[in-house]
Every structure is written in structure tokens, then in C-alpha cells.
């Protein structure tokens, strides 16, 4: 199966469940191919979990879902070493993180301690418990969801944690037409449960390897860095984009090129991804924004900043 076909098929597969959100689906696939982690942020009931679920179901990979609550412990996620009487020694019981696709549902409902237990897994794709390092299986992707409208009993993700997500996506309400389609669906089952896998883990790894081969012309690298630089120099932002952010944008642009069937990047790739990849990594200046920045505000700022950077010819 050639790559563009397989990418097409996974998008089509997800689109069977998530109606009218082709762009969001495309971005989720881009995130997967760029070896990134995805943060879905939206009001309840617009399909965050369903999207994560459908993506996982479309791949013939292991999938685990962790419902984050305030009493969740780090050991529930990463696993625990227990004394085995028969073997007369400690045995590592892996936690929920040991899967190809992990859905961290309502990630901001748990304590910072538990949230930070995800850090190593997301950054280095490995887990250290009791001086033992356990590598995670590839491909590995965390899809986290959070609800921006509710603040009671939540712990907002710290900057360091946010920076480890490649993208932050907002799904948004469907159009009237699409919503009608959702309602007229005749299944009683959860729609994601019906999906069958269209891509194997091996194929995902092959596609991820292809992303590394994508050519990014020098002027485009300069363009990307100019955007990053502009966020650091902007008076509207108190915190600009980190080097990890720049790296993430570069990777995502390459992945988008693959998704669009090219083996080279275009300025459009960078420009389109910049708000999605960068807006959760910046902090608005207090004088310009509210104390708790909203998703739309940060996104608009980043779009404005990108509009000040000339595109290379």
C-alpha cells in the first residue's frame, strides 16, 4: 500500500465517525506522523474523546484510556514494582501508559504530581521506576483532552507540560448539516467501536520514517525561525516559543507535507501549522490579555505575528 493511500484511508476511516471535521482529523494524523502528542481542548461533548478513540481504533495498535481524576496516582499511570512471592523478587507491573496510543482524558483534573509522571514518557518515550528504565513501545502517542470552560477542581497544566504537546487542537461545534448527520445515525453502539483498523503499527513507523526524509529548503527554515523569533520579540507576548517549539513546528510541517502527498515543505505548511503548534507555548502579556489566557486569544496573537513575517520568495 503506498503512503498517500494509507494516509487517505486513515483519514477517511476517522471521518466515518467525526463528521465534518476533516481539518481536525488531518491535523491529528499529522501529529501522529510527526511523533507528537496531541492536546485536545474544547467544551464537553464535541467529540474529543471520540476523535482520540477513532484514531486509536484505526490503527492496529494497543490503546489505553486513562480517566484522570484528583485521586489518580502516578503509579496508576507508569506502573509499580511489587514483591512476587513465587519468584522471591520485585516484579514490575506496567501501568496504563504502556500502550501505543494513550488517551489521557480530562488531564487537568488530576494533581500536578500525577500530571508530571507523564513528562518522561512523553519526552523520551520511556519510563523509569525504581532505577529501572522501561522503554515504551513505538509508535507512542498521548492524546490528552481538557475542558477549558470548567475550572472547579482543576489543575491547569504547567508550561513545561504544555510544551511537550506538539499541537493543541480545538474541535468546535459541527455545522447544522453535519450535526443532523450525527443525529440521524442509526447505531446504538458507540460509533468508534465499529471502526476497524486500517493501518498497522509497522506502517505507522514507516510513515514516520518518511517524514524525516522530507526536504525543507533553507529559506523555509529561515522563515520558520523568523516566526519563532518574532514571537520572542513581540510585545504582546511575555513568553515566546522555545527551541522545542521550533523543532516541533519543523517536524509538523514535514508531516503535513507527507499528508498532502509531497516530499518537500512549502511556506504554506509552516504558516498553516504555526497557530496550532505554537499558540499553547506562548504566554500573553498581562497588560494585553486576561490572567488566564483563552485558546482563541493566543491563537489570534500568533496569527497576527505570523502575518508580520514576510514569506521568502
Amino acid at each position: 500500500m503506498n503512503s498517500s493511500h494509507s494516509i487517505r484511508s486513515i483519514q477517511d476511516n476517522i471521518a466515518l465517525v467525526i463528521k465534518g471535521k476533516t481539518h481536525v482529523i488531518e491535523m491529528a494524523v499529522v501529529c501522529l506522523l510527526a511523533r507528537g502528542h496531541l492536546l485536545l481542548e474544547d467544551v464537553p461533548g464535541v467529540g474529543k474523546t471520540t476523535l482520540a478513540h477513532s484514531l486509536a481504533r484505526s490503527l492496529s495498535c494497543s490503546f489505553k484510556r486513562i480517566q484522570f481524576t484528583s485521586d489518580l496516582l502516578p503509579s496508576d499511570i507508569v506502573g509499580v514494582s511489587m514483591f512476587n512471592r513465587q519468584k522471591q523478587g520485585f516484579e514490575f507491573i506496567p501501568g496504563a501508559i504502556f500502550a501505543n496510543v494513550v488517551l489521557a482524558d480530562e488531564i487537568n483534573r488530576t494533581t500536578p504530581k500525577t500530571q508530571s509522571s507523564l513528562l518522561e514518557a512523553m519526552g523520551e518515550a520511556q519510563i523509569s521506576v525504581d532505577n529501572q528504565t522501561h522503554p515504551l513501545e513505538q509508535p507512542f502517542m498521548v492524546i490528552a483532552t481538557q475542558n477549558p470552560a470548567e475550572y472547579h477542581g482543576t489543575f491547569p497544566l504547567p508550561e513545561s507540560q504544555l510544551d511537550r504537546f506538539l499541537m493543541r487542537l480545538c474541535i468546535g461545534y459541527p455545522t447544522l448539516k453535519e450535526e443532523r448527520k450525527v443525529l440521524s445515525r442509526a447505531y446504538s453502539l458507540h460509533p468508534a467501536e465499529m471502526l476497524g483498523p486500517v493501518l498497522s503499527a509497522q506502517e505507522v513507523l514507516a510513515l514516520q520514517a518518511r517524514v524525516d526524509q522530507v526536504h525543507m529548503e533553507e529559506s523555509l527554515t529561515d522563515y520558520l525561525l523568523a516566526i519563532v523569533q518574532a514571537t520572542r520579540q513581540s510585545e504582546l507576548l511575555s513568553l515566546g516559543v522555545s527551541t522545542r517549539g521550533a523543532l516541533g513546528l519543523s517536524k509538523a510541517a514535514k508531516a503535513l507535507a507527507v499528508v498532502r502527498g509531497r516530499d518537500y515543505c512549502l511556506p504554506d505548511d509552516i504558516k498553516e501549522l504555526a497557530p496550532i503548534v505554537l499558540s499553547h507555548r506562548v504566554m500573553l502579556n498581562r497588560t494585553h490579555g486576561m490572567r488566564t489566557q483563552s485558546f482563541e486569544q493566543a491563537e489570534r496573537m500568533v496569527i497576527d505575528i505570523v502575518e508580520t513575517v514576510p514569506v521568502p520568495v
Binding site: 512549502l266 511556506p267 504554506d268 504558516k271 505570523v306 502575518e307 508580520t308 513575517v309 514576510p310 514569506v311 520568495v313
Partner: peptide, 27 residues
């Protein structure tokens, strides 16, 4: 080809359709 592209942009701009510096080719 870059030269041809700028040439094209200039030609179109002469007809009153202006490209902002931050607009990509597709835009």
C-alpha cells in the same frame, strides 16, 4: 523560477491585485 514568480506577482499587481509580503503563494 523564483524570478518568474516575482515577475508574475508584479504583473498581477499592475492590474490592481496586490500581494502582501506575508501572504504565501497559495494564498
Amino acid at each position: 523560477i523564483a524570478h518568474l514568480y516575482t515577475h508574475m506577482v508584479r504583473t498581477v499587481e499592475k492590474h490592481g491585485v496586490h500581494k502582501s509580503p506575508s501572504a504565501t503563494a497559495n494564498e
